[in-house]
Design a protein around this nucleic acid. Structure first.
Length: 546
RNA sequence: GGGCGCAUGGCCUAGCCUGGAUAGGGCAACAGCCUCCUAAGCUGUAGAUCAGGGGUCCAAAUCCCCUUGCGCCCGCCA
């Protein structure tokens, strides 16, 4: 099986034999001039105009069994790949293995750490961007063949968490998310009037780090309640974890102390710090309690034992922290594992930035609920023929997919301003747009019988275009995996669906002559397979009807 | 003040790493398409000094420098 990348390589080799070029000079064309383009401006600059070399190359390329045509045009050699060849590769893979492509294999173990939000409240949509990106990266790398694990670092030891605990002790109330959150917001308000509270928090940090069973037990319970809330909301949109790693465990089993011992620390009035170029980083307070940086190093050392590649999904506010962490791990602790940080910018509301403490947030729960209501309204309108249960099931799939899609489609470094009307747009460039085409393809197959004849290879342009974009799927998957860019998959899906919609409009499937029918049925089957495969990578749930 | 990001039609966005052929989509607007596999679809029209300036190059949205605007960081918080 020759995947698109292999074709590129093969063409590169062929050209390179005659004239040394750069690998970047052979690329997937996206301007409609060809399938694969070879940039030959440099050959044209040769004293003789390079005409002979180019003709040689074209002759040689034309001889390949997968090449339809090769032609020089301006500074390029345009190469067209035979559509029947592409069609065969895709269909063959799907009929034999049930999947296309089926060839990626990576042996490395990869840890994807994402979300890791303080369990001090429900997840708001800004934080959810972390989860949605992280989970998509996890899915892409798993599909690519890596052995992946999803990890959530539960920060149950920091000041925020102790503040939540202190608020619960001070103000009482039931052990529920709402009550805890209310207390949490209240303590930050009261803190401004009553400096005694700060002392109380500090005392509790100390008790906590000295493993005071009362503080420890209650705090773990509080964190558990909050974390359950976060986890169940995430589960609703298809995001789960393999491991929840508790910061307090690292504290209690001595790994944090060990890390501090491994580093050359200096002392400032009892507080321990290390120095890295241009920076002083404190590992402990002067009362001896530990700081996040120390605990995060301990955590990464733990992860490094089980993963060749560690990926952290982080908000842009963590950039400096991560850079320092990388420096310490690499240069001071000699950790050689691959370590990648995937940063994303914040989601803000039209009214400004979100803050859990101040209470001006749109929670992920709110967003999914409201999207569901909106979707249900539309499904009720469009499908009165279905049962209540079916319509609810469809609305739920639309809501969870739409929420994920609206966030993943924008590349991570771009800031997002959240707007309800945009989040609730179910037209083109949305999850429902993608899902709808799956339902249509399914509908064709439901009405169709198994083809009996061999398929013909004379295709309409719309078929040929659809075949090409299906064939090229591995190329996008590879880039998305290597560059950690799930948004590429979102873009691919839209192009794929657009090609299918063109095909759908121009080419009947049912009722055509046997050899055309045999081919188109296979194309539709392959399409459904690839669409759901790619959709799955970013959490779009395909449904049979909508 | 220092550091890191971002800036593309009225709005959202792809392309930038790895410079090349008419800057690709979508929303909103306007004009059309359901006796034919689901119209959450499709076709067409209109809309772009690629923030501004300079530089490198045969060639710049893309690379370099400067400027402007916005976001984030610069805690013995996380």
């Amino acid at each position: 099986m020759l995947l698109f990348q292999d074709l590129r390589k093969s063409i590169f080799d062929t050209v390179n034999e005659r004239f040394k070029i750069s690998e970047n000079d052979v690329y997937l064309d996206d301007t409609g001039h060809s399938d694969i383009t070879v940039r030959v401006f440099r050959i044209l600059k040769s004293p003789d105009g390079g005409e002979n070399v180019i003709n040689d190359i074209i002759t040689s390329l034309s001889g390949k069994d997968y090449v339809e045509k090769a032609a020089a045009e301006g500074g390029y050699i345009n190469v067209w790949i035979k559509r029947p060849y592409m069609l065969h590769e895709v269909i063959d893979s799907i009929e034999r293995f049930g999947i296309y492509p089926n060839v990626f294999q990576e042996s490395d173990r990869v840890s994807v750490e994402h979300t890791s939000a303080n369990p001090t409240g429900p997840l708001h949509i800004g934080r959810a961007r972390n989860s949605i990106i992280g989970d998509s990266v996890y899915r892409i790398l798993s599909r690519y063949g890596y052995r992946t694990v999803r990890q959530y670092f539960v920060n149950d030891s920091g000041k925020q968490m102790i503040s939540l605990y202190t608020a619960y002790i001070r103000y009482g109330g039931p052990l529920t998310i709402d009550s805890l959150l209310e207390n949490y917001q209240k303590i930050y308000r009261d803190l401004e009037k009553d400096p005694g509270i700060e002392k109380e928090i500090e005392k509790n940090i100390e008790r906590y780090e000295n493993a005071d069973p009362e503080v420890y037990g209650t705090l773990r319970k509080i964190a558990g309640v909050m974390l359950d809330g976060i986890a169940s909301t995430l589960k609703r949109i298809g995001i789960e974890f393999d491991e929840f790693d508790w910061e307090s465990d690292l504290l209690r089993d001595g790994s944090v102390k060990k890390v501090i011992g491994m580093l050359e620390t200096k002392d400032d009035d009892g507080a321990k710090f290390i120095e890295i170029p241009g920076k002083k980083i404190y590992l402990t307070r002067k009362d001896g309690t530990t700081l996040y940086f120390a605990r995060d190093i301990a955590y990464h050392l733990l992860k490094a034992e089980n993963s060749e590649w560690m990926i952290d999904v982080l908000g842009e506010d963590h950039k400096d922290h991560a850079r320092s962490l990388d420096h310490v791990l690499r240069n001071m602790l000699r950790i050689e594992n691959r370590l990648s940080f995937l940063y994303y910018s914040f989601i803000t509301l039209e009214t400004g930035k979100m803050s859990t403490r101040r209470g001006n947030i749109v929670t992920l729960q709110d967003l999914v609920d409201k999207t569901y209501e909106e979707a249900l309204k539309i499904v009720n309108e469009k499908r009165p023929d279905l049962s209540d249960d079916d319509r609810k099931r469809i609305a739920e799939a639309i809501a969870t997919s739409a929420v994920r899609y609206s966030i993943i489609r924008v590349s991570a470094p771009k800031p997002i301003t959240f707007r309800w009307d945009e989040a609730l747009n179910f037209e083109a460039n949305s999850a429902p747009f993608i899902m709808y085409s799956y339902a249509r393809a399914t509908s064709i197959l439901e009405k169709a019988s198994e083809p009996v004849e061999a398929y013909g290879t004379e295709m309409e342009p719309e078929e040929a275009d659809l075949v090409k974009i299906m064939y090229v799927y591995p190329y996008y998957l590879k880039d998305a995996a290597n560059d950690l860019k799930p948004d590429l998959i979102a873009g691919y899906l839209v192009s794929l669906v657009q090609k299918f919609n063109d095909f759908y409009g121009a080419c009947r499937v049912i009722g055509t002559d046997p050899s055309t029918y045999a081919r188109r049925i296979r194309i539709v089957k392959a399409y459904r397979e690839i669409l759901s495969d790619a959709g799955n990578l970013i959490g779009i749930k395909m449904i049979e009807q909508m």
